[in-house]
Amino acid sequence: MFVVTLTYTAPLERIDALVAEHVEWLDAHYASGAFLASGRQVPRVGGVILARAQSREALDAILAQDPFGRAGAAVYQVTEFLPTKTAPELAPFAVDPV
């Protein structure tokens, strides 16, 4: 599983102009099962995505298509982690500790 932190590199006016296209991109990856949760950071300096892509390379390919990144309006930090303990609702995403 991955935590993706987006940091805006453009003014919010530019971000706002890209939001509709970004939401379409998010929707496509929710439909594929790659994204589990997403939202704005507080304060509004970027966003966070909880992803379960097949690999880091697969996630990088997905992120390369984000309208924010394609427009040079955001940069990404990706942290991979193994969810060994979860709330009951997230149990299907847990992995056995090794």
Results as ranks from 00 to 15, higher is better:
residue 3 V to G: 12
residue 36 L to D: 02
residue 7 T to Y: 00
residue 54 Q to V: 15
residue 59 L to D: 00
residue 91 A to S: 13
residue 51 A to N: 04
residue 57 E to W: 00
residue 63 L to M: 13
residue 41 Q to V: 07
residue 24 E to P: 00
residue 5 T to H: 06
residue 8 Y to N: 05
residue 21 E to R: 11
residue 52 R to L: 03
residue 10 A to C: 06
residue 88 P to K: 13
residue 92 P to T: 11
residue 95 V to T: 01
residue 33 G to C: 06
residue 6 L to V: 04
residue 89 E to V: 15
residue 26 L to W: 06
residue 37 A to G: 02
residue 80 E to S: 12
residue 90 L to V: 07
residue 14 R to C: 09
residue 5 T to G: 06
residue 5 T to W: 04
residue 77 Q to N: 07
residue 91 A to K: 14
residue 36 L to Y: 05
residue 64 A to Y: 01
residue 81 F to D: 11
residue 57 E to C: 00
residue 61 A to K: 11
residue 92 P to C: 10
residue 8 Y to P: 03
residue 65 Q to T: 14
residue 63 L to I: 10
residue 38 S to R: 10
residue 92 P to D: 08
residue 20 A to I: 09
residue 31 A to N: 15
residue 93 F to P: 03
residue 46 G to L: 12
residue 19 V to Q: 06
residue 65 Q to G: 12
residue 85 K to G: 10
residue 35 F to G: 00
residue 13 E to Y: 04
residue 74 A to G: 03
residue 50 L to K: 01
residue 62 I to W: 02
residue 97 P to D: 04
residue 62 I to V: 07
residue 76 Y to E: 09
residue 63 L to T: 15
residue 10 A to M: 03
residue 16 D to P: 05
residue 46 G to S: 15
residue 56 R to Q: 15
residue 6 L to N: 00
residue 71 A to N: 05
residue 75 V to T: 15
residue 51 A to S: 14
residue 82 L to D: 15
residue 35 F to W: 01
residue 28 A to Q: 11
residue 89 E to W: 07
residue 28 A to C: 15
residue 32 S to Y: 01
residue 4 V to I: 12
residue 20 A to G: 09
residue 97 P to I: 02
residue 69 G to H: 13
residue 14 R to K: 12
residue 34 A to T: 13
residue 18 L to C: 09
residue 33 G to F: 11
residue 62 I to M: 09
residue 77 Q to V: 14
residue 54 Q to T: 12
residue 49 I to Y: 09
residue 55 S to K: 04
residue 82 L to M: 14
residue 4 V to Y: 04
residue 85 K to E: 14
residue 68 F to I: 04
residue 1 M to G: 03
residue 81 F to S: 09
residue 93 F to L: 14
residue 34 A to Y: 02
residue 15 I to K: 13
residue 95 V to W: 00
residue 73 A to G: 08
residue 92 P to I: 09
residue 83 P to D: 03
residue 65 Q to Y: 01
residue 52 R to K: 13
